[in-house]
Design a protein around this nucleic acid. Structure first.
Lengths: 219, 219
DNA sequence: GTCCAGCTGTCAGAGTTCTTTCAGAGAGCG
DNA sequence: CGCTCTCTGAAAGAACTCTGACAGCTGGAC
């Protein structure tokens, strides 16, 4: 029922982080530490999606990707590539990958790309809601309380999406920065965007501050 | 044990099909043919999930949704909307629905979304309870006696947690100061926070003073 | 190429809330 | 009654949050 995802990444810390995040999103996650393990795992149980690091000892990501496709894997393949390796991306796509995310990546971005890959063929537009707030994650617009839709910027939309994906949990500044800014930003940036969202939502109460912890959507 | 589902759909053929399919999946299904019947059924037995057709004569799905929420229904609401009515989806979500499926729908999709709804709401907060008091140690909120949750400050929450972790023991001032203030504070600080907790718990008796010894939760 | 507009991210200071102490009022006990 | 222990209001200081200002960046228009 849940989508099966195979995470292929040799760095154990990164792999565990991905496994945890994807698992929390409802994916059924399997990890593999190298190309050989990845091929074996894909054989044992065909995944719906593969998240594949390019740089690995032994079989590299391109080769794994090619072999998976050669075996007839039709699911989406998302590659993780280094920041400045433009040609790697081309090679990855040529090898049969569907999309790529640049390292260091924001979790939110990986999730968004994965959802885009699983969505292919389904006609579902991307709406996320909680209370009066409805976010269109494709257009990047929100409506709240029947008012006219407000256009959000990319960051604003990511932050609101993060809140909406887990509407009863407190989102910590650190968690938001990890998910959206890949861990590289001042904590104050979260406050800054929360303030902008509160203004665009036209309701300062829509996002509450939990002092010392983070932010949470009003129930 | 089984989740109670209320299916609200005016087309008898579709309704019966849903009832049969959901029943086969182990849900405990009740059907309603119009908005009025739905509200009555929800009153009689609060459902865990509601599957709600938007287009109905009389009270439409939006209105039913709004009224269910107004009555305090917290369970998931899944709306069935027409294919090309994006606006309807927004309206539905704004009215308090949690998700939607486009008609004509695949029964598998309805099931998948229903399972997603039952799975969610699992906000992995840590709860500590004793008697009527329930402390959420992540959000730092308490509810006591069914009232609305009160937000605690960091220190207040720490002190209450200390009491709740060993609800039958008397907590001495020295012990509390050791645990929370690392031994560096005036003993009076404990009295001060006990007083605040008594007020926020809305029950001065909830924490008793053991003269000459310390404090203990009421049994 | 240059200009412009909008988006991002940082900083510092204003604003708000929490923490802690103190002193004196209040309550229990012999 | 007198003593000790407990409770509470006030207030200073600390911690946290919010916001205006600003500079860098990007992408599009000309």
């Amino acid at each position: 029922m849940a989508e099966r995802v195979l995470v292929v990444e040799d760095d154990a810390a990164v792999r565990r982080m991905l496994e945890r995040s994807l698992g929390a999103e409802g994916f059924d996650v399997t990890g593999a530490a190298d190309g050989g393990a990845a091929l074996a795992a894909a054989e044992a149980q065909v995944p719906d999606l593969v998240v594949l690091d390019v740089a690995m000892p032994g079989l590299d990501g391109f080769e794994v990707c090619r072999r998976l496709r050669a075996k007839g894997l039709t699911g989406g393949i998302l590659m993780l590539t280094a920041r400045d390796a433009v040609e790697d991306r081309v090679r990855g796509l040529e090898a049969g990958a569907d999309d790529y995310v640049v390292k260091p990546f924001a979790i939110a971005e990986v999730l968004a790309r994965m959802r885009a890959l699983t969505r292919r063929g389904s006609d579902r537009s991307e709406l996320l809601a909680h209370g009066e707030i409805v976010l269109d994650t494709v257009k990047g617009t929100v409506t709240s309380g029947g008012g006219p839709p407000a256009q959000l910027t990319a960051r604003e939309a990511q932050l609101l999406e993060l809140l909406l994906r887990d509407p009863r949990a407190v989102l910590s500044r650190a968690g938001a920065i990890e998910a959206i800014w890949a861990g590289a930003a001042t904590e104050n940036i979260v406050d800054r965007y929360v303030a902008r969202l509160r203004r665009k939502l036209d309701d300062p109460e829509a996002i509450r501050t939990v002092r010392g912890v983070g932010f949470i959507l009003a129930p």
